[in-house]
Amino acid sequence: MNWTLFFQMVIIGIATGSLIALIALGYTLVYGIVELINFAHGEVFMLGAFFAGTVIGLTGVTSENSTIQIIGTLLLALLACMVFSAVLNAFIDRVAYRRLRNAPRLAPLIAAIGFSFILQNIAIYWKGPNPLIAPKILPREFTQYNILKEWAIFGGYFDDKFIRFMAKDVLVIGITIPLLIGMSWFVYRTRIGTAMRATAQDREAAALMGIDINRTIQVAFLIGGALAGAAGMVALIYNNSARFNMGFQYGLFAFTAAVLGGIGNLTGAVVGGLLIGLIWAMSDGWMPTVVPGWGAQWTNTVIFSILVLVLIFRPAGLFGKATTEKV
């Protein structure tokens, strides 16, 4: 058994998993409050990645610029993507889902599927059908930087042949964790977050408390969109490319994560995201070395099977009834 590879895949799995968790939170927030599977959420993420490409391109900052400029640009792009995707998500709610609040629940779902196709086509108009290559903003030294090898505390024990813990992985996790903390602070500590939780539990009673339901739902879409936008930017940097159809796979993987964690459950979505990230990395990278005939081409099958099996046998998620607080 190749333990080096195994741990390498754990690191990759955690990085992609935290990305998936960001997207999964958007599904879970929206589902928790309006009981809608926002099928277009993956596309909101994908357009966030496209937007990141545009913003970074516009600033003209490249890996040649100073570190401060690079960091500043990345932060600016992150913020811009979050705003962009947040507004896009809320816009879709405003023009379509809100009108369907009292229709049977399949009506907004069908509209969401429609939107998913519309957004994919907009993406093709925008950047073409071929993969978009990420702007060269991270210096080569940085992308090649292996913390385990370079940092003195590891005593030069590891070389590149052993596990690499790349600066890029740190970047992903470093962006994700503050966002997760910020979001739970928002949901549990702010007035509007409280309104969201109340609305999710009993919409009508919440209205009687003086909560503006439509605005609260809109905020859920805004936050979900913002997280998807951040994930989009991170994905572009991490994968070095983005494509118009990436929202479908990421979206379904993230939805699987949300279902795995118990849809509506914020902590569950994060745990589910990490799990799916790990499964993804293991199936792609590690399983082929242990299971003869295994290959990355089976990953989709594995994850969709998990989705189907969890929905059938544990529709309340892995943690079942004993969920912590829902949205």
Binding site: I37, R105, L252
Partner: peptide, 16 residues
């Protein structure tokens, strides 16, 4: 399953 979950299951199946 509820209607929307069923929809996703059918989708998952059609990917598998």
């Amino acid at each position: 399953l509820r209607g929307d979950y069923l929809a996703i299951v059918t989708l998952g199946f059609s990917e598998i």
